[in-house]
């Protein structure tokens, strides 16, 4: 992927890896894990501050999952929703405070500003939806859903699967990438325009960073909501 600057790649076992993505994803995972680890110490019946934060987050993601998925499946999807939301939240905000370019090559950024990462997450979500659909309804019930309301709809339904996959990933990627791109544009404008421009760009950068934080939170929420909607549609028999 060559969007937003050149990258450093290496080959391993015949697969191509983008070093920037690997580092960014790893950092995001470590941050999420450290956050969750720090918040989950000393769990008690009467919650402390950290426990309250964690329980609020868990309740929040459980609420998202429960609002679309009903019954027993919602319980098993709680962990998935929580992990996805935390990872996306951290990943979306990571590029706003941590952006490392070395001689034009980006090493640390928002992992979700790369389409490969977001499309992979989208693919995982839809694969999970297919898997849960087959497990809940059986092969017959699952694939019969593609023929409903009547059989020519198989074209529409298959196309919908594909568009779901694309829109879910690209929505997140587009939002985060545009935010980062504009931030780096403002930064380069400030750097090239001298001290006056630097002062003028400062509030602009500040405002856009705040807006990007907002966008990042919203997109993490939207991604989890849509994912659970897609899953809920797969594990229920259509009328």
């Amino acid at each position: 992927m060559t969007i937003g600057g050149s990258t450093s790649t290496f080959n391993f076992l015949g697969l191509t890896f983008n070093l920037g993505n690997i580092i960014s994803v790893t950092i995001a995972c470590v941050i999420v894990l450290a956050l969750v680890f720090a918040l989950s110490r000393h769990l008690t019946m009467k919650p402390g501050k950290a426990q309250n934060v964690l329980e609020y987050a868990v309740d929040f993601t459980n609420g998202i999952v429960n609002s679309s998925v009903s019954g027993e499946a919602a319980k098993s999807l709680g962990l998935w929703g929580f992990s996805l939301f935390m990872f996306l939240l951290v990943a979306n905000l990571q590029g706003l405070f941590l952006h490392v370019d070395i001689s034009g090559i980006t090493f640390v950024k928002s992992p979700t500003s790369d389409p490969v990462v977001t499309m992979t997450l989208s693919l995982m979500t839809l694969t999970l939806a297919q898997f849960l659909g087959i497990r809940t309804l059986g092969y017959k019930g699952h694939f019969e859903n593609y023929l409903k309301p009547f059989w020519p709809f198989i074209i529409v339904n298959l196309f919908e699967e594909f568009t779901n996959f694309l829109t879910l990933g690209l929505r997140l990627f587009g939002n985060i990438l545009s935010g980062e791109m504009l931030l780096s544009m403002i930064t380069s404008m400030a750097m090239n325009g001298g001290p006056k421009m630097w002062i003028a760009a400062f509030p602009l950068e500040l405002a856009w960073q705040g807006f990007s934080v907002f966008i990042g939170c919203i997109q993490a929420y939207v991604f989890v909501v849509l994912s659970s909607v897609y899953i809920s549609r797969k594990i229920e028999l259509e009328d």
């Binding site: 080959n11 076992l13 697969l15 191509t16 890896f17 993505n21 690997i22 992979t120």
Partner: peptide, 14 residues
């Protein structure tokens, strides 16, 4: 190129 390695890495990491 499609960075298939990245995709696998993201899946495993997640």
């Amino acid at each position: 190129q499609l960075y298939v390695g990245d995709m696998i890495f993201v899946m495993i990491a997640f």
